[in-house]
Nucleic acid binder design. Structure first.
Lengths: 135, 135
DNA sequence: ATGTCATATACGCATATGCGTATGCGACTG
DNA sequence: CAGTCGCATACGCATATGCGTATATGACAT
C-alpha cells in the first residue's frame, strides 16, 4: 500500500498552475521549511501562504510535519513515476527563473545573515533534504 | 527571432490542467487532425472543442493550418527545452491512461473502419507526424 | 488561567473558467 | 449568388479560484 495515492495529471497540473505555489515548491526544493519562512520570503500575508500550502498538500505533492507550534512543509515525491518525473523537471525548470533564484537568496539571508527577516526570529531553521530537482 | 515565444511554467501548466485539453493533446500526438475528428472522438459539441483548441493555441503548444474549409491542428513543440520536455513527458504519461488509449482506438476506427463516425464523412484524413511523446 | 505565538480556516468579494446555445464568417457547391 | 459546410466566436450562466480581513485553534509561556 503506497503512503499516498497516485496523482492524476489534472490534479498535478492544476497544483502547478499558480505562480505562488510554484514559488513555494521552489523554496521547498532541498529543505523542509515552516510557514513563517514562506511568508517572509514572498513577503505576503500568512493566510495566503497557508491556503496554498494546504492546496499542495491536498494535491499530494507536499507533506507536513507538526513541531510544537510550527508546521514544517516539504515536497512529497508522488508515488507514480510519471508525476514524480514531471515534478522533478518542473523544479529544475524553476531553478532557472530569476524570481525563483531571488527567493532562494532571500531564504538564505533569512537563515544565515546577522539581519534575519523579522518574521522568522526564533523560528526553527530550515532542515536540509535531498532535493528532488536541481539543488 | 523564434517562431514562437518561450512558454512560461504557469501558462503551460494551466493549459495542461484540464481533462478535455489533455485528451485533445493526446489525440494530436503523432498526427495532425481537423476539428471534426476531435468532435467525433470526444463525442461532444463543436464549440467546446474549438474553444479548447484555441486555448492550447494561445498557450503556444498547438499550431493550426488552414486547408479550405478545414483547420488542421497539431502539437507545436515549445521553443524552450524545459517546456518541451514536460510536454513530451506528459504525452508519455497520458499514453498509459485507459480513456486516452480508448480515444486513440476511436480515432483509428474513425479513419479506417468501414463504419466511420458520421461526423467525419468526407473530412480530410489525419496526417501522420513525428510524435513528441510515445507513439 | 491568561496571554501570546504560529498556523489554519471562515467569510465575502472580485474575477476567471468552463459550458451549452446561438450566431458569425469564410470557403466551397449548385 | 443562395445554400451548405466547417469552424470560430459572442453571450449568458453556473461554478471555481484567488484574495484580504477577520477569526478560530492549539501549543507554549507566564
Amino acid at each position: 500500500m503506497p503512503r499516498s495515492a497516485r496523482i492524476s495529471a489534472e490534479v498535478l497540473f492544476r497544483a502547478l498552475a499558480d505562480r505562488t505555489r510554484l514559488r513555494l515548491l521552489n523554496l521547498m526544493n532541498g529543505q523542509e521549511l515552516c510557514v513563517c519562512y514562506f511568508v517572509g520570503v514572498l513577503s505576503t500575508n500568512q493566510p495566503k501562504i497557508s491556503r496554498h500550502l494546504a492546496y499542495l498538500r491536498r494535491a499530494g505533492i507536499v507533506a507536513a510535519r507538526k513541531d510544537g507550534k510550527w508546521m514544517h512543509y516539504r515536497i512529497a515525491v508522488p508515488p507514480n513515476d510519471a508525476a514524480a518525473k514531471i515534478l522533478k523537471q518542473t523544479l529544475d525548470w524553476l531553478a532557472h527563473d530569476p524570481e525563483m533564484r531571488h527567493d532562494l537568496t532571500l531564504l538564505n539571508k533569512a537563515c544565515c545573515s546577522p539581519n534575519a527577516l523579522v518574521e522568522i526570529e526564533g523560528a526553527p531553521p530550515p532542515i536540509p533534504m535531498q532535493p528532488l530537482g536541481a539543488a
